[in-house]
């Protein structure tokens, strides 16, 4: 077990982690200024998880929230288990070979999203009574008003918002890894996990199509919930 954890960390991992955390936060800010309905604040975490392994990914996620708490807004602190589990799951999926082509990356993104829903729901319920300070809480609040149970309301809210965000995150991370020179990727402990089986153009278009469909589906659900 300890050896497995240690195998995730070499000097290059330790150097990559701070940069990955900065990528998480700065890309998050860029996306915020673009006013897009996603967060994209875990690209760095997924990168570390794929290149270095699940434990390094989990550490990056947890530290990312801690440092965002120190440097940007203390409201980030309570969500560190979510970020850590995102990193861990991304690393595990990559170890199982699910980070080698576009459609596999979409599957990985979906699994990460499910993980995020499962971990964030208890935190939102126990710490905030279901209503957090984020914008999507309006949906939760509406669902609560319509008489749904608190667990159901919180989980369905994040189920609407998470998949689009996490699949896009995974795809961006894959695009970045594809764009890096082989020599740069080779220095990381789990470089083999990211070896693409051939980046098929058609698969990329299908993957983008899936994301667009998911956006439409989420919008449809939202309209049904808020309009109904």
């Amino acid at each position: 077990m300890l050896d497995k954890i240690k195998s995730n960390f070499n000097t290059q991992t330790w150097v990559l982690i701070p940069i990955a955390i900065a990528i998480n936060l700065v890309v998050g800010q860029i996306v915020l200024t673009l006013k897009l309905p996603v967060f994209l604040d875990s690209i760095g975490t997924v990168l570390v998880a794929v290149l270095c392994g699940p434990w390094a990914g989990a550490l990056t996620g947890a530290l990312s929230n801690t440092i965002a708490g120190i440097a940007l807004d203390p409201g980030w602190f309570p969500w560190w288990p979510v970020a850590a589990m995102i990193g861990y799951m991304a690393g595990r999926m990559a170890e199982w070979g699910f980070f080698k082509s576009w459609w596999k990356v979409v599957v990985t993104g979906f699994v990460i999203a499910l993980t995020a829903v499962i971990v964030s729901t208890p935190i939102a319920v126990y710490l905030f009574g279901g209503i957090t300070a984020s914008g999507s809480s309006f949906i939760t609040a509406y669902l609560l008003q319509t008489g749904q149970g608190i667990w159901q309301a919180v989980a369905s809210t994040s189920f609407i918002t998470e998949p689009v965000d996490k699949i896009t995150t995974a795809m961006l991370a894959f695009a970045i890894i594809l764009g890096l020179p082989k020599r740069t990727v080779g220095g990381y402990p789990k470089a083999a996990n990211a070896e693409a089986e051939g980046a098929d153009r058609n698969q990329l278009y299908i993957a983008i199509g899936v994301v667009v469909l998911l956006v439409l589906f989420a919008a449809f659900l939202l309209r049904n919930i808020l309009g109904g």
């Binding site: 000097t11 150097v15 990559l16 970045i176 764009g179």
Partner: peptide
């Protein structure tokens, strides 16, 4: 415009990793 903004930022920082290590 996400990719043209995120791409240069991320690639630019990842290239430094090996030197720093």
């Amino acid at each position: 415009s996400v990719l043209p903004l995120v791409g240069p930022l991320v690639f630019g920082s990842l290239v430094e990793v090996e030197e720093r290590a």
